[in-house]
C-alpha cells in the first residue's frame, strides 16, 4: 500500500486514481472532524468536499514538511471556521428561557446532563483553545500535528490546550461547588469509565 506522500506525488503527475485513493482514505476522519465544529452532517459534507477541492488545487504548495493528513486537516479546520463565521448567529426566544427557582436545580441539571453541559462549555471556549482541545481529546492527535493544523508553534498549541482544559475545570467546579470529582465517574459512558480506570491504574 502506497503512503500518502507517494499518492500525492502520483496525483501531481496526473494520476486521478491516486487522488481517489486519498479521498477514500481521509474522508471519514475529515467528516468526523468537521461534524465536531459544524454539528450538522450536510454542512460537514460540504466542507469536506470543499476541503478536498482546495487540497487538489493547492497540491503544488504541499511540500511534505508535515503529514498530508495534518495539511488536509488544516484546510478543513480553516474552511469550517470560515463557514461558521458566515452562518447567522443562533437566536434564542426569550419566552423559551426558564429561570431556575430551586437552588439545587442547577446541580441536578449538571448531574443529569453532564455531556450536554460539557459540550456547551467546550463550544464556549475561545476558538483556538476549542480547536486544540478537540483535536487532542477527540481526535487523539499529537501536539506536533495540532501545531501543524493550527499553524502555530508547538508550545502555543500545548498552551491553548492547557488553558482550555483548565477553563473547563474551573467552570465545572464553579457549577458543582464542593462536589467530589469521583462523583462524575458514574456519568461517564462505559468507554469513558474504562479509560478512567486504566488511567487510575
Amino acid at each position: 500500500m502506497k503512503s500518502d506522500l507517494e499518492l500525492v506525488e502520483d496525483v501531481k503527475n496526473g494520476d486521478r486514481k491516486a487522488f481517489s485513493e486519498l479521498v477514500i482514505r481521509h474522508q471519514r476522519p475529515l467528516l468526523r472532524l468537521t461534524m465536531r465544529f459544524l454539528k450538522d452532517q450536510m454542512l460537514a459534507e460540504d466542507v469536506v468536499q470543499e476541503s478536498f477541492i482546495k487540497a487538489y488545487e493547492k497540491l503544488n504548495l504541499f511540500e511534505g514538511r508535515s503529514s498530508f493528513k495534518s495539511w488536509l486537516f488544516q484546510i478543513a479546520v480553516n474552511t469550517a471556521k470560515n463557514r461558521l463565521r458566515s452562518m447567522p448567529l443562533e437566536q434564542v426566544n426569550i419566552d423559551d428561557v426558564h429561570l431556575g427557582v430551586d437552588p439545587g436545580a442547577e446541580s441536578q441539571m449538571v448531574r443529569g446532563d453532564i455531556s450536554k453541559l460539557l459540550h456547551k462549555e467546550v463550544d464556549l471556549l475561545p476558538e483556538r483553545q476549542r480547536i486544540a482541545l478537540t483535536l487532542r481529546i477527540f481526535e487523539d492527535l499529537s501536539f506536533k500535528e495540532i501545531a501543524e493544523i493550527m499553524g502555530c508553534p508547538y508550545d502555543t498549541a500545548k498552551a491553548n490546550y492547557r488553558h482550555g482544559l483548565m477553563r473547563l475545570k474551573e467552570r465545572l467546579e464553579a457549577l458543582q461547588g464542593d462536589t467530589d470529582w469521583n462523583d462524575f465517574e458514574t456519568f461517564l459512558p462505559v468507554e469513558g469509565r474504562r479509560m478512567a480506570t486504566e488511567a487510575d491504574q
Binding site: 459540550h119 478512567a196 488511567a199
Partner: peptide, 24 residues
C-alpha cells in the same frame, strides 16, 4: 482531577459518523 476531566470530555463525544457506506 485532570485525568477524570479529560475522560469526561472524551466520554461526552456525541459525534456519530454515518454507517451507511453509500454516503461516503
Amino acid at each position: 482531577t485532570i485525568t477524570k476531566l479529560r475522560d469526561l470530555i472524551k466520554g461526552s463525544d456525541d459525534v456519530c459518523l454515518p454507517e451507511d457506506g453509500r454516503i461516503y
